[in-house]
């Protein structure tokens, strides 16, 4: 922790910010200016969003810091699991088969 405090320039924050901007513009560029199929575009920009969110968690929010770092990590992994169940599960159940008509 000591050398963490004495650093005078927040290099990891600046890198995180620049990469976040690049990911944002890359996603917008791919979504708006390419002729890839809807499915391919959604997979690419969805992945870019996950990468950017992960960067926020680790570089800005110090997810694994402190004695509860591991607990935080497990908590977030479980939250991501719940997101997948709720979002993918809802869309799957409600837009396929009988529900679609």
């Amino acid at each position: 922790m000591e050398h963490h405090q004495s650093k005078s320039f927040p290099i990891s924050h600046v890198i995180g910010f620049v990469v976040s901007l690049l990911l944002t513009f890359a996603a917008a560029g791919i979504a708006l200016y390419t002729n890839l199929s809807f499915k391919v575009i959604m997979w690419i920009i969805g992945s870019l969003a996950v990468v950017q969110a992960g960067m926020q968690l680790f570089m800005f929010m110090h997810l694994r810091e402190g004695e509860d770092g591991k607990t935080n990590l497990v908590n977030m992994i479980y939250a991501v699991f719940m997101v997948i169940v709720i979002v993918v599960g809802s869309i799957w159940v409600l837009t396929s088969g009988h529900a679609a008509h």
Partner: peptide, 28 residues
């Protein structure tokens, strides 16, 4: 203070689930 920060992370986990339900509805 450590417990408060841990507790806030747990709250954020619940917030993520709240937003997941709204994303799920929008996705449908």
């Amino acid at each position: 203070d450590r417990m408060n920060i841990l507790g806030f992370w747990v709250f954020l986990g619940a917030e993520i689930v709240l937003f997941a339900t709204l994303f799920g509805v929008y996705g449908v």
